[in-house]
Amino acid sequence: MVNGGAEFSVMVSGVSKSFGDTRDEVPVLRGVNLTVRPGEFVTIIGPSGCGKSTLFNIISGVVLPDKGRVHVNGEPANGRVGLVGYMPQKDLLMPWRTVIDNVILGMEVAGVSRQDARREALPLIAEFGLEGFESSYPYALSGGMRQRAAFLRTVLFKKDILLLDEPFGALDALTRQAMHEWLLGVWEKLGMTIVFVTHDVEEATFLSDRVYVMSARPGQIVAELRINLPRPRTYDLVVSEAFLRLKAQLLETLRGEGRMAGSRAP
């Protein structure tokens, strides 16, 4: 195993974070605990603004938690960047770089020469449905292609743990479904660990092995749900009884959380 035999790829224990100064403090995360096993697909679901992106920033090391610890592959990772691959909500393809030069960004930062990086990326271009576009600029790509390019950039950073922050939020429903099946295919083939953030119940149910439900701000983990659906999954699954039951259960938890959040509001 790439992670050196640690039991958890990602372990977040008791992480809290507030923003703003002491007088005007906004708590964003409160005592968040979660674990992700190697090769697992784990989703964090919660209402908008519940601190999911902050949690990802803490795991990826660009933001320090006020309290708590992050371990990546068994090693302390508070404030340590470059241990995980991070795919943000926006595709963030650089308009001045061709598709191939965009996807090799992580390798380039790691010090690989552009030539070598391109040679390594080229075979994956086709697998990610981008063949013929490697020397195009991002403006020539459709929404789905942009997300695939952004995902390939994350994969080519070559970390076995990927954090995906609502990567398909901006896509239309049909493209989204296609991307879900495609993502699961790539995940099963390449065997990485994925931590996924979304506020879409169906997306969470369809993709994940396990789902953590987060409360409204300050974000806390309020429930954990195991998705015992067979793999490989295709979209026929979403009308099956087992799927609908899990989806309903997840929705119920989430709505309970929404009511609680509503009643807490001043």
Binding site: V62, V81, V84, Y86, P88, L92, M94, V109
Partner: peptide, 25 residues
């Protein structure tokens, strides 16, 4: 774009790399 700067930071890019890859273009 601050999000691009953040992305490069998650990759552990140096200040010079951030300048060369994002800010200059």
């Amino acid at each position: 774009d601050p999000d691009m700067l953040n992305l490069l930071r998650t990759m552990g890019a140096s200040r010079w790399q951030v300048f060369k890859i994002v800010q200059m273009p």
